[in-house]
Amino acid sequence: MKPKIKTLDAGKDIAGLFIGIVALIIIMSIAAEGFLSWYNFQNVLKDFSILLIVATGMTLAILLGKIDMSAGSVMSLSAIVTTILLANGVHIAFALAAGVISGGLIGLLNGYLVGVQKLNHFVATFATMSIAKGLALVACDGDIISSDSEVLLFIGTGKILGVFFIIWFTAIVYILMLYVTNRTKFGYEIYSIGGSEQVAMLSGIKTYRVYIIAYVIAGILSAIGGIFLAGKANSGNATIGDGYEFNAIATVLIGGTPFDGGKGGLLGTAVGAFFISVLRNGISLMGFTPAWQYALIGIAILITILVDVLINERAKREEKRRVAL
């Protein structure tokens, strides 16, 4: 029999999030001018796709009970690598491949440190975060690198059948990863390691292999997100992905995948990503200065996490009481 995994703990978790999204859309459409337009909807979807592709990788890490702090810096690194190679006249295919590989290598390092060396996952990925950021800074010398590649511009802003390329690509990756986490042996292994690493190891799962593959996937997906960001402006700089790891972690948490690991799944992540991208879009449309946006988005995300954690705590307490009875 194929292993069947409950992707969502309970329908009501996501139901609450849907109510939140509807409320948010109503508030934003009153407060922000031009929020309810087709043009803006496509913009939201584009931001949503970039956030979702990064958060998909982050979900794998958090399902394992770990975290990937390096996501944002990997985005910057891959954007810089791609644009620098393009600026030096390298063929677009090689430039894109190099960008993706740079992310994969950082992911490999993460996976090795966490899975084989058994370092604390936070320290390891925090260190690779500053390594990736440092490499990006050194590579671009602190400058903005602009490229004149039409292919990169197409990746960032082009449309196929009236829908942005980014959205198509993310949809394909997302569905693929949904299949991988819910229907394959690898996905099953991720859930069981997240549930209890000891038990997973004793039942014969090569945990280090799962860690390495999961972190490499997370690195590659972040790198693709970085290339999308570079494509949007057809240029790259060393701070392009700053803060994305925070947004991605928040997305995953709001989507019902707690830090304990082994619970939740990608379905919730998509809903969480939509929530956060609507929030970001609305706040920037309301005409706040960038400084205000910086603070407001942080506050909003922190409050959402807070509400989420409080709801979870109450659910846990109730469950405990039920067990005690």
């Binding site: 370092l119 320290v123 690779t128 500053s130 990736a132 950021k133 800074l137």
Partner: peptide, 21 residues
């Protein structure tokens, strides 16, 4: 170059974690 600092700090954190291990 001062731009190398982030990279160096990251490596230092990794090395110290490895030594502790």
């Amino acid at each position: 170059d001062i731009l190398w600092q982030d990279f160096v700090f990251g490596v230092v954190i990794l090395i110290s974690a490895m030594i502790e291990k």
